[in-house]
Design a protein around this nucleic acid. Sequence first.
DNA 1: ATAATAGTGTCTATCAGACAGTATACA
DNA 2: TGTATACTGTCTGATAGACACTATTAT
Lengths: 254, 254
Amino acid sequence: MIENESNYSPDHYRTPDGAPTDIVIFTIVSTERSKVKKALPHHELQVLLIKRNIWPFEGQWALPGGFTLETETVQECARRELLEETQVSEVHLEYFNVYSEPGRDPRGWMISHAFLALVGEQQLANRQAAVDASEVQLFPVAEVLKLPLAFDHRTLIEDALLQIQRKMLTTTIAKAFLPDEFTIAELYQVIQAVVPDFAEQNFIRKITSTQSRSGIIEKVVDAAGEPKSSNLYSQRPAQLYRFTGLEPQLSIYG
Amino acid sequence: MIENESNYSPDHYRTPDGAPTDIVIFTIVSTERSKVKKALPHHELQVLLIKRNIWPFEGQWALPGGFTLETETVQECARRELLEETQVSEVHLEYFNVYSEPGRDPRGWMISHAFLALVGEQQLANRQAAVDASEVQLFPVAEVLKLPLAFDHRTLIEDALLQIQRKMLTTTIAKAFLPDEFTIAELYQVIQAVVPDFAEQNFIRKITSTQSRSGIIEKVVDAAGEPKSSNLYSQRPAQLYRFTGLEPQLSIYG
DNA sequence: ATAATAGTGTCTATCAGACAGTATACA
DNA sequence: TGTATACTGTCTGATAGACACTATTAT
């Protein structure tokens, strides 16, 4: 006899006590290195946390999130919560895993849907002033993992970090952390902020002049067709680039 | 004021009517090409479906699955259902997405957790005989997408297919469809069964002799240290290979 | 011998990686 | 002028891609 969902009747079974979503909101914070003038700022990956003010885990830091409504998808729930939390809507938001370990939530049987969001620093700027820093705060990832966190949120953050590290190297999500036009040095800094081990000697060459990878980014030209550059962070002006929208297709078999 | 899950109380909210899991079970079926002796069989990617015998979608084909218990994770539920369905436990089982569109299930508010399983043909062999073919059946992927399917299972299967196509080219999941020792031609056939567009002229060269990719597979040697080969599918014996367990690290930035 | 599949030799254009060197602008 | 950052020239060895060629076995 084959078992399947045909045997289901809602009355006979225990049902979940809610469908929460949790959101790991990443941003990259630039801090100016004032020692040297015209230097690229230091880039650091940070995570947004909220201090809980009621049971359970009262007083501990937790990921922002909320309960899915019957009338929405979990993606819509996550976007709604993200909007409430950061006041921004145009962000990279991505589902990455489900957490269903029995007992993970003292309030009952809660299967949590975990999202990660990548928010540009400038997008977050407005919000920061309007919020009490004791309730909502950005933490560098290294520090987050030392804090006592509510629920299984440490695991969620670790998993989210692995996910964006993998995607940073295999997709063009770096653009979520960059302005439309950026220099190669900025791109390099963003990648390193997410993947500290990343190091490429001939980075410019590979990303710009190799045929196999060409087409991911392109030089920005001005109205006259002349290459556009910026000397915001350097003595010599640096060529500006933009992502073309082309997504690379990677393969281990050729 | 910041909204978060602190405001939750189970009594005030509508809760889901269950936490189902659905499993897209893939296998690769080899059919001998009897016209030619000693020829590599034709490999075809197939999906296992179950014919529903009660409401809703009675009489339609659906993915196997079932309801998660309060005492288990969704992964445990999926593995339990997979064991009931196929009698095999040592298989690649992977969570790939959540489906929560309101109204997707006529029985109520059901947020479904979708898994994909990769089962070797030989692993499925025992089971096939024991099951009524009118209730459980393997379908080639092309045919599955033409059938009327229960729930949103067409979408699940399409998503699962994209996922294994991507992973087939970027990870070593091909091993789920292969015996421990295999020839390069078999590996090539498996990749093509999942990704029909895949074509590499110098496949052997790239997978075996290039330094950057070397280490993913290795030649099998016998007890005397001599290279081991097989002439099961060819006139001239072909070198046997095995996966080393090493997972390649891909990157678009070098 | 012929057929069928496995695998190698070899050539060219391109790429990776290293490192020295030049370019542009600020102080 | 020196300094800081942005690039470019150039060299060597490795790789991609094509295609002709040889190797091993069954019939």
